[in-house]
Write a protein that binds this DNA or RNA. Structure first.
Lengths: 142, 142
DNA sequence: CTCCGTGCAAAGATTTTGCAGGAAC
DNA sequence: GTTCCTGCAAAATCTTTGCACGGAG
């Protein structure tokens, strides 16, 4: 929601016990600059390569996994490549357009009870994915 | 829920407008014989290869996609390989154990309101995935 | 200085595609 | 007989791994 300055990026990394490197900074900033903030590893690589052309794909994968462990990102698994969500708000869920494959944040009504414990299972995470056609694609005949 | 005989398998395929072939029959029967019915393409291939050793992997993928289009299976996307669900009951959702990676059917309380239309999006499908540790894995120290 | 992160390349896993032969209807 | 499915093999996609160098703390 709130835009965070570049200098804060380093502080955020340090806060989470992560070493500050140029790679981590540009990767984290790629999410801040993205409207919506739902990027695939490949998209992150493309964007972060602009300021840092030497950046290897493997580093992107390693770093994204690191960020997930540190609680900076949340992986959204679905069709094809995994997308990473920088919006850590527990109350939101996702809508994927089956036409354009984009991912949107949504706040559906009536999902709050989902945190209810399931007997026999220790629930640690909940992922709600709505699928359909977004208004933009719905306007197109095809 | 109810076990369906082999002879019904062919009828079911015909009903859905699908040609009846040995491959499709053994693939569909693999789901009936599986407790829980959440198989990956590879698991389907392994099981269906028993009665039909010539069965190619590509055929399994093609056939599963066909079955999804025909409404016989529902794809459950998540970490790693996609699992296919033979339980078409709209009211159930899934729990994945992050230790053993198995998928269980669950009926969490309070999810009914999820079918609520999301303004601006035409929702066609809803996928709720709970993640955590199953009771079986929870009993193991590691 | 020490440790951890990075880059490179290669392998691994999953899924898709093209085409010719063959079976279902 | 016509149409659609299957098998084979190869490629495309997405992700992980091993190892040596180099920069962060």
């Amino acid at each position: 929601m709130e835009a965070v300055g570049r200098q804060d990026t380093a502080a955020l990394l340090r806060e989470r016990g992560l070493r500050v490197t140029a790679q981590r900074r540009v990767i984290l900033e790629a999410f801040r600059e993205d409207e919506g903030g739902h990027l695939t590893a490949d998209e992150v690589h493309t964007r972060a390569s602009e300021p840092l052309p030497e950046l290897a794909r493997a580093t992107v994968y390693n770093t994204l996994a690191e960020f997930v462990r540190a609680g900076l990102l949340r992986p959204i698994e679905g069709r094809g490549a995994t997308r990473y969500d920088a919006n850590l708000d527990e109350g939101h869920h996702h809508f994927r357009c089956i036409r354009c494959d984009r991912l949107f944040d949504v706040h559906p009504v009536g999902v709050d009870a989902l945190t209810v414990a399931e007997p026999g299972f220790r629930v640690e995470r909940t992922q709600v994915l709505l699928e359909g056609v977004c208004s933009e694609c719905d306007a197109v005949p095809a």
